[in-house]
Amino acid sequence: MHITAADASRLIVLLVCCAAAIAAKGTTPHIRDIFIGRCEYFKRFGLDASSFASFLDCNSTWNAFFRAFAFKQHCDVELDAFDSFYTITKQKVPTGKSTFWSGTQALSQLFASDGLRAYTIRQTFMGFLVDELTWCGSSTDSSGLNFTYCPSFNENDCSNQAMASFWGGASKQFALQSTGSVYLLLNGSRGSRPAFVNTSFFGLYELPNLSLDQNEKVQILIANTLGMTPNENCDTGSLVTLKERLTSRGLQYSCEDNPPILKYMLCALAENPTSFRECQFASDRGSLVTHVNLLFLLFVCFIIVVLH
């Protein structure tokens, strides 16, 4: 069989892509370098970094993170394994700026606007260091890391998965560090999935660590996926359960269905926003509030572009 140069090139590309896909299943390559680079960046430019991070040693911070899971089986990392790391990276979130989310990851990041409006866990020091990275340990590899395979969060036979334990503990710390009113962004149009799930990270780790002593109110914002019919709102379904849990903890709450600012942000995230009825704003032109919100969103986007 004759293989042309073009065929060979396509084969090489295919092999490279396959190798990358396999590597992506394990610990992120060069994770230590990425971690320390992010640490040094955050010390200089991170949100509120001058108050706590400027004096930190990034190598010591990495070692505290690494020791929590390295040389361990990937399903044998307890929730408290990262406690030393949490202590080093402890950060008080500015009052009234904490944002929790479930089923709205991309939207919550846009809502937070890199800390201009609010903070999600990914804007904090502990979250920023490992955001979008993958890691797990190996008891046989000399590096202590498994670069071939890390189990996913939802594998039933892996209750102490390294990343799940990290984000569970980090979620608890984020809630404990939050003061004043907090935001909670949920998705009211997830098909058969409820907006609030008792076993979500918010339900398991964040809600139980919000307290009447520190938190004045939980401001619930329900977003609706573009083009989908909402199956839950502030007064139905899982939101009733959520309100009961908040009330049992003595926490005040408010709830708003599909507020305009979230609708605009969803349209900004959409690949083809003009194809959605919700993104046709002609009928809103008479609303001063609508214009103010839209202008604010455009201003935030401009600031983010400038800063980056």
Rank of each mutant, 00 (worst) to 15 (best):
residue 84 S to Y: 06
residue 196 F to W: 08
residue 13 V to A: 07
residue 11 L to R: 06
residue 174 F to I: 03
residue 4 T to K: 05
residue 176 L to F: 07
residue 277 R to C: 07
residue 29 P to V: 05
residue 272 N to R: 15
residue 117 R to T: 11
residue 50 S to H: 04
residue 179 T to C: 14
residue 190 R to F: 07
residue 273 P to D: 04
residue 211 S to P: 09
residue 281 F to L: 14
residue 43 K to F: 07
residue 278 E to H: 14
residue 190 R to T: 00
residue 10 R to V: 07
residue 194 P to C: 13
residue 202 F to M: 10
residue 83 D to P: 02
residue 112 A to G: 12
residue 93 V to A: 11
residue 172 K to E: 12
residue 233 N to F: 06
residue 107 L to R: 07
residue 73 Q to K: 06
residue 283 S to I: 08
residue 280 Q to L: 15
residue 289 V to T: 13
residue 53 A to K: 00
residue 97 K to Y: 09
residue 141 D to C: 03
residue 64 A to V: 10
residue 134 T to L: 10
residue 262 L to A: 06
residue 31 I to M: 01
residue 48 D to V: 09
residue 158 C to W: 01
residue 72 K to M: 05
residue 267 C to D: 12
residue 307 L to A: 11
residue 172 K to R: 12
residue 104 T to Y: 03
residue 160 N to P: 07
residue 227 G to A: 11
residue 2 H to N: 08
residue 95 T to G: 00
residue 272 N to K: 14
residue 240 V to D: 01
residue 14 L to N: 15
residue 36 I to A: 05
residue 132 E to R: 08
residue 105 Q to K: 12
residue 170 A to H: 01
residue 269 L to N: 14
residue 205 Y to R: 10
residue 121 I to Q: 06
residue 133 L to C: 13
residue 287 S to A: 11
residue 15 L to H: 10
